[in-house]
Design a protein around this nucleic acid. Structure first.
Lengths: 342, 342
DNA sequence: ACATTTTACGCAAACGTTTTCGTTAATAAA
DNA sequence: TTTATTAACGAAAACGTTTGCGTAAAATGT
């Protein structure tokens, strides 16, 4: 039951050698004789020495770890991105440290601060909702000034020339809506986020574009900006209430789509005869509902991989930091039961 | 566009004062005159100095951050636990660093190593599947030897006397099964994990206990250990195939439960007349399916809070480390449509 | 007037490593 | 035998902080 921390200094003292000898022996340096190496190795194994990572990183000025900041973890999509990032990173010998901002500006700032001042070599972030609301990205712009390797994914800060990998949300929204139109829908509603969330706003743009292109009229009664602080289900119910002739819904995420489906069942609406539904994000939920949900697949895993690829490139070749890279991961439509018509 | 790192040393040089003066000024020490303080503060704000956390932590021998290792992030339950932990921690002034083991032993070992050697003051972990398979928990026992503050949640290592907060899985399994029995089910199947996963095994115990208590016979055809490396849906389909008289299913997680529901719909089985289903974990999925899922609520948020409470107690009062604490978070049955009978 | 206290700062050790550069002793080359 | 080389190790600076202690000058007390 050893309790005191065991350091190079203590090992050195115990074996009557210098600190540098121990350090070199542990890295199998040719400067140390095989005999001493063995003596040191044996002792080290016995006491179970582990180097202090803080000291190592401080000295090396490198940590081989990457920080990730996401708004929240519950989203399947973010989890997928992280998995993709982790996958790429671990093959390159990097580890991942994940934190969450809870969609709060202050926490995002705090985590950026914590991670970028020593803990990690680079940062991957998806911006918090509150940062959009406040339109405050100064914690990121100081990072850019410092030329700290930084890549954004999915939710990217407005007005900053940064590395980012996103999906084409406008196109995604367009595809989803177009699909409903092609299936013969006449009155198509959209359940989206408040306008300051770029991904929601962009999907809404795509929605409008598809409608206009097909000669439909835009109807503000059909455009619902969900306020997540209130009951989502009640807001969707209100949509149905307001629009008796509604025959299709485009929901900008899985959650809204699943709830729409549920409400439809409660109102005895037949999918797809009375109502078609299409979502966004191809997660477990979309596959497991009855009927299963048509959706726009975002390929989060690939997004994470790509983001990490760019980040590591920026880390290893600092000169590349001068030319921000922007990559768009293609989306594709996954047709399932909620829009499948004979 | 400043690029060189700015440190106390550089500030001191620029202002012709000593490093300690700068350091003390930044902490508003009474040892420094108001004039010098202002001079330093102004300069520091201008250049945007941020202390190096590695150096600070190394010196302070304290980081005010807590590490979390989870098998994976996609699980709603884990996300909830993390949120609870984060909530408690942030109120106590601690930050969270999250990593995932991918259910792999080696990665779990690596992350434990990374975090516990400098990066964090304490560790919260839910054990990887592979560690159970290998029955290898040495990376944790060395932590115990070092008296490193450590609390397990949900999936706890076998044979180690450790701090842990779990739910009573046996009781949960019992409650779920009993509920089905009370509702009149005759042939009740269980969809569970391979036996080495303790939570699955325990829920299965509760299932058996409830059956025996009610005078039912155990039927191995009704006990399915799902192998996640193969198609889950096909395995569930096989269950239905094998048991035409099946009238209730207890699934040990949301995923299996949702898939069961989906399959039932495809087989045109009426819920609840032909089949009742009950799950485990009260996440978004259970609420959003049609019919909605009855389930055993695990209260992940509370679990996270409690785990963090214990951990912080161990950190602040090292003497408490001698007496491992074990807390059980109560579960409760949430009845929804999938078992609701008139 | 001198002694004492206070103010305002600097020095240097410490946290635990890595690594460059000496230095000594043994070995090889002349 | 003398000189050059190599092998094996140690001293010390450096990474960027914090903090106890020392000290000169200024302020206060007698």
């Amino acid at each position: 039951m050893r309790v005191e921390k065991i350091t190079l200094k203590k090992i050195a003292a115990s074996l009557n050698v210098s600190i540098s000898t121990v350090s070199k022996a542990l890295k199998d340096s040719h400067e140390i004789s095989d005999l001493t190496k063995k003596r040191i190795l044996d002792y080290v194994n016995e006491v179970g020495y582990r180097p202090n990572n803080l000291a190592v990183s401080l000295q090396r000025q490198r940590t081989m770890t990457i920080g990730v900041i996401v708004p929240e973890l519950v989203h399947h999509f973010f989890s997928r991105v992280i998995s993709g990032a982790e996958n790429y990173a671990s093959h390159a010998g990097y580890k991942l440290l994940i934190t969450m901002s809870n969609d709060e500006w202050e926490k995002e700032r705090q985590m950026t601060d914590l991670l970028t001042n020593g803990y990690v070599d680079g940062l991957l972030v998806s911006v918090a909702k509150q940062s959009f609301e406040k339109n405050n990205f100064m914690h990121f712009s100081t990072l850019l000034d410092r030329r700290f390797p930084l890549v954004f994914f999915d939710r990217t800060p407005s007005g900053l020339n940064v590395n980012k990998v996103t999906i084409n949300d406008v196109e995604g929204g367009y595809k989803a809506t177009k699909h409903l139109i092609d299936k013969g829908a006449q009155r198509i509603a959209i359940l989206t986020t408040p306008p300051h969330i770029s991904v929601g706003a962009d999907r809404e743009k795509g929605y409008k574009k598809a409608l206009l292109e097909a000669g439909y009229e835009l109807d503000s009664n059909l455009i619902f900006h969900i306020d997540e602080r209130a009951s989502i289900k009640e807001q969707i119910a209100k949509l149905f209430d307001l629009n008796p002739m509604l025959d299709a819904v485009f929901a900008v995420n899985e959650k809204y789509a699943a709830l729409t489906l549920k409400l439809a069942a409660q109102l005895n609406l037949k999918i797809t005869d009375d109502l078609m539904v299409i979502g966004f994000t191809d997660g477990f939920i979309s596959k497991s509902t009855t009927p299963s949900l048509s959706t726009i697949a975002q390929h989060g895993f690939e997004m994470g991989e790509k983001a990490m690829e760019i980040l590591l490139e920026k880390i290893e070749d600092k000169s590349s930091l001068n030319t921000p890279k922007s990559v768009i991961i293609p989306t594709n439509l996954v047709e399932r039961e909620s829009t499948r018509k004979p």
